[in-house]
């Protein structure tokens, strides 16, 4: 069982110093990802989901840094890796895909150059051999006539094509884990559906694990086996996708689901959660969501632990919704 644990994060805290003291963008996160797992991380902008992904990659921009907790990958603790050790890991065992495909590729380098360098950074192979690997990866993500495409520049590609190139690049070294940070947000819905389908197939075929970061619960529901909902740097609810979507326990998750257009009755206004994300510099004493929560009581002044409600479901709430109903 233990060797199946690919990624294990405990008490992770990533802080950014400000004149008013450090801000914890990620505030005590525990996560586990097993091989072949697809984990969705859902949250609003500013909930810390992107910083969490960057922390796992060792890519948090200074002056921000991981100040507490540990990250273990494939059984090895990587929290205190040196830059050279991170370089050996990044793009090799863990790959990352960013949100905006139009800016992820260097505009003045050919696609082929940008893909081949990702292979040669980790493996001592000839350029011809690398080119062959690149061709195969391009075909796998549905890019036709890869030979022509290799000589092209990014601006000659559509947004969807560019994101396919980025995904193909992430696949080149057959990583154990891919972190995808809102990879379809900048794309139109049909392209998004295609890419979701392709990613699902790739995970099934290759057995790699995927962390899919998104603000869109609907997208995550289509691809993830498990979902973790983040709010103000903390995970507030976590569980198997079907269980969680059927009966969300945290009022925030319930609010997110109620506000999805697909769940709204026809002819009625869309539901929204009142208020906005709290300032990280000025978090409420207990539950961060309490000021926006319709069920908040004085008991919410103490921060609850993330505690299991069923074998595959955990929630950080003093009065989870399930019990009430």
């Amino acid at each position: 069982m233990n060797q199946l644990k690919l990624l294990s994060i405990q008490g992770l805290r990533t802080e950014f110093p400000t004149p008013d003291g450090p801000l914890a963008a990620v505030n005590g996160v525990d996560l586990e990802v097993t091989r072949g797992d697809v984990l969705g991380i859902v949250g609003e902008s500013g909930s810390g989901k992107t910083v969490l992904g960057l922390s796992i990659m060792g890519l948090v921009d200074r002056p921000g840094r991981v100040t507490a907790g540990r990250i273990a990958f494939g059984g090895t603790e990587i929290t205190n890796y040196s830059e050279a050790q991170w370089q050996g890991l990044r793009g090799n065992r863990i790959a990352m895909i960013f949100q905006d495909p139009t800016t992820s590729l260097n505009p003045v380098q050919r696609i082929g150059v940008q893909m081949i360098e990702a292979i040669q950074a980790h493996r001592d192979v000839s350029t011809d051999a690398a080119r062959q690997i690149v061709r195969e990866a391009m075909v796998r993500v549905g890019i036709n006539s890869p030979d022509e495409r290799l000589e092209a520049y990014p601006h000659q590609f559509s947004g969807g094509m560019r994101q396919r190139v980025v995904i193909a690049t992430a696949l080149l070294n057959e990583p154990d884990l891919i972190i995808a940070d809102e990879p379809t947000t900048a794309l139109d819905v049909t392209v998004q559906a295609q890419i979701l389908r392709d990613m699902r197939r790739l995970c099934r075929d290759t057995g790699m694990a995927l962390i899919w970061v998104s603000h869109d619960l609907g997208v995550v529901a289509q691809i993830a086996h498990r979902v973790a909902v983040m709010y103000a740097g903390r995970i507030v609810e976590q569980g198997a996708t079907e269980v969680m979507l059927k009966s969300p326990s945290h009022p925030y998750t319930a609010g997110l689901m109620a506000s999805m257009p697909a769940n709204a009755p026809r002819g009625q206004r869309l539901v929204s959660i009142p208020g906005g994300l709290p300032q990280l510099s000025n978090l409420p004493k207990g539950c961060s969501f309490a000021p926006r929560c319709a069920h908040a009581t004085t008991a919410c002044d103490v921060l609850p632990e993330l505690s299991p409600t069923s074998p595959d479901h955990a929630v950080r709430c003093v009065s989870p919704l399930q019990e009430r109903s």
């Binding site: 890519l59 991170w86 990044r90 793009g91 790959a95 505009p107 360098e117 990702a118 950074a121």
Partner: peptide, 26 residues
């Protein structure tokens, strides 16, 4: 500060390679 530099770092490229192939031409 561009995304393509962040993506280049995410590919595991060395700083030297990033400066030569991605920073300098731009």
């Amino acid at each position: 500060a561009q995304d393509y530099i962040k993506f280049a770092r995410a590919k595991g490229l060395s700083s030297k390679r990033i400066v030569r192939a991605h920073l300098l031409p731009n």
